[in-house]
């Protein structure tokens, strides 16, 4: 608090707070001085993370039950987050996701729908709910963890990829709407990250640390960046992948 200027407390609502990327992000944000509201389904797990963050950073950290598929509850979750932020600035880090194997999805119509509902419909529902709050707040940041899988549909992951592509398109429009209110909207596109989602997947050797995604996401939010790839080489990898003509791409096996 230099020069007597009162600094606004930053508060992050972390949706999908048990995921490895969300946990890394929460540590990075709390370490940077933000308060946190962790939202997710595994209450016991979130309680552990909240205790850990309080001890490590001495910030205010609370937990709220949240299920992406319980659409009726979304309004309550957003309201709760705004209350928690109080006079501070509410920000959202949306990190939940669901990625079963494509073969499993191909065998189940319900599963295909769940993948779309969690990865896309729930994102729309939550952010639409939050929009008026951000427009009234006139500041803040919305960061959504998308995926490079949304940049190009592949036979091995196209239902998940299409949901992430839809999120990217939604975010483009949402970004324009929020821009008028002074709120920044960032789409984070991680490459292959070393998390439970990719652990032991056939063909996946390792992956980048979720800490890199967290650090890049926080930096991007602070700068109000629109779209980032993380770790950064994925921007160039995906530029090449996107440049392959569809006629050729459909024959490729990856």
């Amino acid at each position: 608090m230099s020069g007597g200027e009162l600094k606004m407390t930053e508060t992050w609502l972390v949706l999908g707070g048990s995921s490895a990327i969300a946990r890394s992000f929460a540590r990075a944000a709390a370490g940077d001085g933000a308060d946190l509201l962790l939202a997710g389904r595994d209450r016991d797990d979130l309680d552990l993370s909240a205790a850990d963050l309080r001890i490590r950073t001495q910030r205010r950290v609370e937990v709220v039950d949240f299920d992406a598929l319980d659409f009726d509850s979304h309004a309550g979750t957003i309201r709760r987050a705004k209350e928690f932020a109080g006079d501070g600035t509410l920000n959202i880090f949306l990190a939940f996701g669901f990625m079963p194997l494509q073969e499993e999805i191909n065998a189940s119509r319900d599963l295909a729908r769940r993948v779309v509902d969690i990865n896309y419909t729930a994102v729309v529902s939550l952010l639409q709910e939050a929009a008026p709050i951000f427009e009234a707040q006139k500041r803040g940041a919305v960061v959504v963890v998308g995926s490079v899988a949304g940049d190009r549909g592949r036979p091995k992951n196209y239902v998940y990829g299409s949901a992430k592509a839809a999120v990217a398109a939604f975010m483009q429009g949402y970004r324009g709407r929020m821009f008028r209110a002074g709120v920044t909207v960032t789409t984070v596109k991680p490459g292959i990250i070393d998390t439970a989602m990719t652990w032991g997947l056939p063909g996946v050797k390792g992956g980048a640390s979720p800490d890199i995604v967290a650090k890049d996401s926080l930096a991007a939010a602070k700068k109000g960046r629109e779209v980032i790839y993380t770790p950064w080489p994925w921007r160039y990898i995906m530029a090449i992948v996107k440049a392959i003509p569809e006629r050729v791409f459909k024959r490729l096996d990856f």
Partner: peptide, 8 residues
Amino acid sequence: ARPERQAE
């Protein structure tokens, strides 16, 4: 295995 949550 590398569980990320106690439940796992």
